[in-house]
Design a protein around this nucleic acid. Structure first.
Lengths: 236, 236
DNA sequence: AGAGTACTGATGGTCTGACCATCAAACAAT
DNA sequence: ATTGTTTGATGGTCAGACCATCAGTACTCT
């Protein structure tokens, strides 16, 4: 005898499933407008409440966007600034700080290789400005942190791989909470920041010369230093 | 003059925000039971509908789980089998197939390095079994695909980095849709499968000997071959 | 005493109908 | 041509109701 697992899907999950399939089949594309809640209520034979549960879930993951008075639309890009739920989930796991550090390391090194091959003139110019920011902002914690993050972020963007960029951002966001205090302590030291700035410059030079291996080596060096500091700070 | 952006957060978003903060502060941990919807309704002064919208969103991303008659709980692990919303978002982007391939390449190579260092005896044994499956399942498409996927999946798990495993799964799921048909065509050829099996064996040997660099090289070789086939299939 | 049964209360799941705020478009007034 | 006004559709929120499910509890029967 063989029994099939009985799955008592909730209504809102079935609604999501249908929308999902429409996306797979290409019937729903970026920017498309979904039917109104009241229309869907008729079409699907369910209550508006269930539809709204489905919509809020889809909005949470950044797939759709509801605008009062207008309607509900499929988002046209996922690289905009929306809350990334991944970081929330990562929060709940133990030892996740170490794993995040490890993963960031491998991703960032691959990232800088790709960036060295593909970075455009505009992106290189942008990186230069963040290096300048870091040099001139010594003493101002917030500005320093921002300049540091933006430098790395721009590298990720210059990799030309949006999925990679998305992953890097998820990791970065998650790390912000796990290592928040540590980060502030690190950057508050004048000496550390000037060393960061110099390392960034080294990475940047290799990027500018489109030398992937050199850039990777410099990034490795930079991350070694960062991780050493973090470990020292964590362990006391 | 400087104006601040007015943000009229929806009620359900504010509820999520509060839960989020409770997690950050450590007041909510894995397996914890949330207050009932009716209790939260009183505490927060909102309707049950809004609370349910918040909950369905949190359930979508796999953070919580609602069980009728019992209550709502924080999930105790995110590596179980829940629908991964990331793959849905990735579907909407153009050229994402190429980016996924590129990203999988770099991640999988780093993955196999870590796995070579850390794989346990049990995991190595598991890999061996999937290699045997692949050898013995020639001709049966479904079994071959499963054996192939499980081999790679086990490597990801053996890396010991759960976040990395999570990312690999997201990529794998997303790729399944973008390259679904292609995959089936690839595996249907007897010749291809036997070659896959041999390459898996090479990777496995290096893993067993805990030789990261060799394993990475073999993986690179394997992925080169796979990507060559995929490109050939896509272009005609 | 032990095992099974029935009741009860709490919980999530769903639906209905209502009211509000917002927006776009058509229209009216200047 | 610009500025208000109206109107209808839409999303946002709420209250109240009913159901199915589950965990105890009290009860019954042996």
């Amino acid at each position: 005898m063989e029994f099939k697992q009985i799955k008592n899907n909730k209504v809102y999950e079935q609604i999501i499933e249908q929308i999902r399939e429409l996306i797979y089949e290409g019937e729903l594309k970026k920017g498309d407008k979904l039917p109104s809640e009241r229309q869907l209520k008729k079409d699907l034979g369910v209550s508006r409440a269930s539809i709204r549960e489905a919509f809020s879930a889809l909005e949470m993951i950044g797939l759709i966007e509801s605008r009062p008075g207008e309607g509900t639309f499929i988002r046209d890009s996922f690289d905009e600034d929306f809350f990334n739920p991944l970081s929330l989930i990562l929060l709940l796991n133990d030892n996740v700080a170490e794993e995040l550090l490890e993963l960031r390391r491998v991703l960032e090194i691959d990232c800088v290789k790709l960036a060295a091959e593909r970075a455009t003139a505009a992106e290189i110019e942008e990186m230069q400005s963040y290096i300048n920011d870091l040099l001139s902002s010594s003493g101002y914690e917030e500005e320093s942190i921002k300049a540091d993050k933006m430098f790395h972020y721009t590298i990720a963007r210059a990799s030309g791989n949006k999925v990679l960029l998305f992953f890097m951002r998820s990791i970065s966001e998650a790390m912000d909470f796990h290592i928040k205090n540590t980060r502030t302590k690190l950057v508050s030291k004048e000496e550390t920041m000037s060393k960061f700035a110099r390392q960034h410059e080294q990475i940047f030079k290799s990027l500018k010369n489109h030398d992937p291996e050199k850039a990777a080596a410099e990034m490795r060096n930079h991350l070694d230093y960062v991780e050493k500091l973090i470990n020292k700070e964590i362990e006391g």
